[in-house]
Design a protein around this nucleic acid. Structure first.
Lengths: 326, 326
DNA sequence: AATTGTAAGCGCTTACAATT
DNA sequence: AATTGTAAGCGCTTACAATT
């Protein structure tokens, strides 16, 4: 029924070892023999069984990808980057969503271990000892992707979020903003946002800065909170932790009769496609989402193929993209 | 180094078969023995090797997912649905992007075969004999997800796209539109859109209908085309093949001095989050994106677990969600 | 009848031996 | 020296046999 390497060997009148050799190019095979093997493979429509190969070679050529939620635009873009580079290096990815819950993440690392993945690309909002322990336990190479790890315990690809926060704040101040709001999610929800907040706070004087907690980060949740906030506080600049919150900021302002950028300027993080699909188009701190994924995966291949790595903590560039909301 | 079932057996003073039994619950094991095995597992931190299990049992508990592009909002949502249900049934997913290119798809089906996936969820824009052949060759259960297969050769989950096109058109006509544009991508790019177009054409008289080709379906590409179109043609209603094109329609109208919904009403397909994150909020034909994935995966599990299936061609409901753009 | 063990096999890779 | 074959092993499942 299923064609095995054994069938190919018989058909080509060679041993299975020789078939394996032409399949993997692990040794020189005489041209004539090779042709016979190739013919047999084509004739029998043989496909090597990757599971058997994985067991024998102890390499599955698959990578575990653990993300909070693929359905988020940011994450989906990252995943695309991961997958593209994985394909390029002949790896496949097992994709899982953790909803950023530590216990789920730890469990997933465990199942990735069972699945014998060669490596893991990991993305989360909060990294703590639990996940690190799980990694050590599983003994699988890991690359953190767009995830804060101040102690640099694990190879990672990120931007300098503190610097990015500063840049956003400096930009608004240069544009004349006197009273700036940092629009974010609840504290502790995302270490990454918290770091940006620190960058903002390092630049804006305390009495010119307000932190506004919009809950879970969703547009719908944030909108009424921001409407109320903008109506009652005198602010002229907003730094939003994501495009979605940026949009909510702009719309909330419009809803209470203020205009962007005249009355209140808005700069947001991320630069997903949302940023240009809205009026006014949003000024953003652009993040290299695709590259987060692509570079993470590339770094992981270096780890796996034992190529030299000159930097285990890759900091990608971010930049201000000026549009009409400021 | 790596702990195997053999080590557990020795530690628990039983045979590996017994360990396997408590691991899989495939046979009754005396309570006392079971406890000893469980203790040994905990003590040795044993994790069963899923690859070995896959080879021995010929079931990998992994599903191949082939989609055009995860970074598209619609697709990402579908994938989330797939993954959630997969997790529920103890499957993992290998995710791949095909960019809807038939040759890539065929190649991917081949590698899924090599990977010994138990089943495939397949999403594409155009289904033809090549992919069907590849499926038959690989002999893997497949469920088509949100893709048109008029001949119903393969189990599938979809909406009635023709009906949906009709509904959109009828809705606009009921709202008094006299001159309706169907805003879509180039013909043949998406069989699904083409079907909707047929539904529209079945309802709107030919001289009241214009089909406008916006190219690849991207907002940026469509915007200038639509600006020109709206400026030069007298239309009062637009049916957009996606939220993105719907947005482009609204913005293009605004750009040439027309208002939505006063001057031109816009209804779009999909109902991604975009639809409510824009002003005016968009009226849409809502698609059950998450359910496309979830139901596809559920159908696949039925196929795999040999549960009774009463319908191999599942048609999900769509519905008009009325908002401010009409 | 309930519980446990033995041994073969899943389809490959790879060290080592044998042949040309 | 170049090329090919032999046989063991990767870590499980599972049919069948053996024991309680």
């Amino acid at each position: 029924m299923t064609v095995t390497i054994y069938d190919v060997a018989r058909e080509a009148k060679v041993s299975m070892a020789t078939v394996s050799r032409v399949l993997n190019g692990t040794a020189v095979v005489k041209d004539d023999t090779k042709r016979r093997v190739l013919d047999a493979i084509a004739h029998l429509r043989y496909r090597p069984n990757a599971v058997a190969r994985g067991l024998a070679s102890k390499k599955t050529k698959t990578i575990g990808v653990i993300v909070p939620d693929v359905s988020a635009a940011f994450v989906a873009e990252v995943v695309r980057g991961i997958e593209d580079i994985a394909t390029m290096y002949n790896y496949h990815i097992i994709l899982t969503n953790s909803d950023a819950q530590t216990d789920r993440e730890v469990a997933l690392i465990g199942t990735m271990w069972e699945k014998q993945v060669d490596g893991i690309v990991f993305m989360t909002h909060r990294l703590n000892k639990s996940q690190i322990n799980a990694f050590e336990q599983a003994q699988i190479p890991v690359v953190l992707c767009a995830t804060e790890d101040e102690e640099r315990r694990v190879p990672s690809v990120n931007i300098d979020n503190r610097r990015a926060g500063k840049d956003a704040a400096e930009y608004l101040m240069k544009r004349g903003c006197q009273k700036i709001a940092f629009v974010t999610t609840e504290e502790g929800l995302s270490v990454l946002s918290d770091r940006r907040g620190k960058g903002v706070a390092a630049v804006v004087p305390p009495d010119s800065l307000i932190r506004i907690d919009t809950g879970n980060g969703r547009y719908e949740t944030a909108l009424p909170i921001l409407q109320d906030f903008i109506a009652t506080r005198k602010i002229d600049g907003m730094i939003a932790a994501s495009d979605e919150l940026g949009l909510a900021s702009i719309h909330a302002a419009q809803d209470v009769g203020k205009n962007t950028p005249q009355d209140v300027k808005v700069i947001a993080f991320d630069n997903t496609r949302l940023a240009t699909m809205v009026r006014p188009e949003m000024t953003v701190i652009a993040q290299p989402m695709y590259d987060f994924g692509a570079v993470s995966m590339r770094l992981l291949t270096k780890l796996l193929l034992e190529e030299p790595v000159d930097n285990y903590t890759v900091i990608l560039d971010h930049n201000v993209v000026e549009r009409s909301s400021t």
